[in-house]
Design a protein around this nucleic acid. Structure first.
Lengths: 114, 114
DNA sequence: CGGCGATAGATAGGAAACATAGCTATAGAC
DNA sequence: GTCTATAGCTATGTTTCCTATCTATCGCCG
């Protein structure tokens, strides 16, 4: 349950959306998918996951519905059309962001000092 | 002076350190280097840059010294040995982070739902 | 039976970092 | 004389994530 990353700041939501892209999942399953899909790197506490899902739902990017499986309540989320559009936009934005950071980190020499 | 990215959260410091890697710079020059080196993507306000540099200095990762050029005060920063080590560590960490996020964003199908 | 770990959900409170907005000051252009 | 670019600073606000704690069920182990 240790979180390697406050570095996720600002990039968590796109990961949650991506986790819901190929089908609905309940919150706990999203948490596991993130952990397993990242080789354990993004093993986020539920105190991070659930509020983030609530934000996404409130923003209309996902919708949730309750069900009960084996006596346990589940809230299963799926992407809305708006959420899908946002995922596409954010994914493309991520690539631009990552490319820019990587370029700056590799850069030598940097633009000249005034 | 508009900042495209709150997404920088957690990744600004490594960029500042990288900007100082091939020689000392003053704060305003760091800001310009970041803007120009990213094609305008990271055009950060001074209210972001200066406090970040102060944090780095207080952490012992950079040191600054005052000078006066053309009647304007400048504080020129350079990397400490500790800052250089941190840069190396953070840079390598960035590559891992970026690879993990990218992999998750491309991933389909995701690890199975329980 | 009793306790514990995994599953499933939630919230309250705090900390960190970036943005907004405002301030001082000089040099040079218009 | 005013405006822009250069050069620096900080107080306040917001967002976002983490820590800690809580409820509850199920299955396993002793």
């Amino acid at each position: 349950m240790k979180a390697e990353a406050q570095a996720l700041k600002g990039h968590l939501e796109v990961l949650l959306l991506a986790a819901l892209e190929d089908g609905p999942r309940h919150g706990y399953a999203v948490k596991e998918a993130l952990r397993d899909g990242s080789g354990g790197r993004f093993d986020l506490p539920t105190g991070t996951i659930y509020p983030a899902l609530h934000r996404l739902e409130e923003a209309g990017l996902i919708t949730g519905s309750w069900s009960t499986v084996d006596g346990r309540r589940r809230r299963t989320y799926h992407l809305t059309a708006q959420g899908l559009r946002r995922l596409h936009a954010d994914r493309s934005n991520w690539h631009g962001f990552a490319a820019a950071v990587t370029a700056l980190l590799e850069r030598k020499p940097w633009p000249a000092t005034t």
